[in-house]
Design a protein around this nucleic acid. Sequence first.
DNA 1: TAGTAAACGATAATTCTTATCGTCTGTCAA
DNA 2: TTGACAGACGATAAGAATTATCGTTTACTA
Lengths: 144, 144
Amino acid sequence: MESSATNFRELCQQHGIAVTHQRQVLFEIMQGMHGHPSPEEVYARVKKKIPAISLATVYKNIHLFVESGIFREVSMHHGTLRVEMNSRPHHHMVCSMCKSISDIDEADLGLLPSHQKLPGGFLVERYAVDVIGICPDCQAKKSN
Amino acid sequence: MESSATNFRELCQQHGIAVTHQRQVLFEIMQGMHGHPSPEEVYARVKKKIPAISLATVYKNIHLFVESGIFREVSMHHGTLRVEMNSRPHHHMVCSMCKSISDIDEADLGLLPSHQKLPGGFLVERYAVDVIGICPDCQAKKSN
DNA sequence: TAGTAAACGATAATTCTTATCGTCTGTCAA
DNA sequence: TTGACAGACGATAAGAATTATCGTTTACTA
């Protein structure tokens, strides 16, 4: 069985990024965390292993991991407060390139909820679907 | 046909909030905006009609509208950067009370995408579904 | 193993949002 | 109507999250 160190080294080589001690510890700790920790929470954990690490390094490497496709952001939405004024039942199309958000009617999406109660006893109020992909503008730019 | 002023007055009475000039102009401008504007963008528009308005007032009233259920937030997610380390295909259950996020396997959700290309030519890469509702903990608290 | 590009830590700066506070206004009862 | 009072307002300071800067150190390639 390969060690996780070897795996991480290969992962970095695949993505063309340098293997540093900080980066490796960060990666391993993040992989071992459940849920969706904030950068601060990750920082707190990593600090136990590398007391001298900087919060900026944590941010920089989380972004690097996300850009490389090693991890993924939970929400594609903008960081600022965004409000919904379209009162018709609809969902969102989010462009993975330009991050633009456009609305799509529920009926046009062709997806409908089927359960009222999910495993664990979670009581469903509504579904919010982000369709992630490439918007027409970015498709055009891509093929140029 | 009722004027929009009357509508807004009734809306405020329904929600037990005062009708102020700022609030009314803000509401009307937001209703007339497309997409999902940021507070800054809304502020810029409102300023043309009420030059003396404060950005804090815009924030306070957007929150008020959201809390009252007049408008809705685009994303229920936390404002901070959150990273996904679960590599299995899954979606999220977001509690509308405590804002906690937990994972649910795609298979358990019972929802599957049916289209590859949506109206407008948007090219689908993947779906990210937020199931919004009440988590078991908050259901328990609620009934107390 | 030397040169170079990139990564690091420290910290200043920026951005977004919220809190504070003195003044003003909308609401409601008289 | 009017007067009292809670709540809303504007100005701005404060706070939280994130990013930029910069001098030093480290990893990769030849």
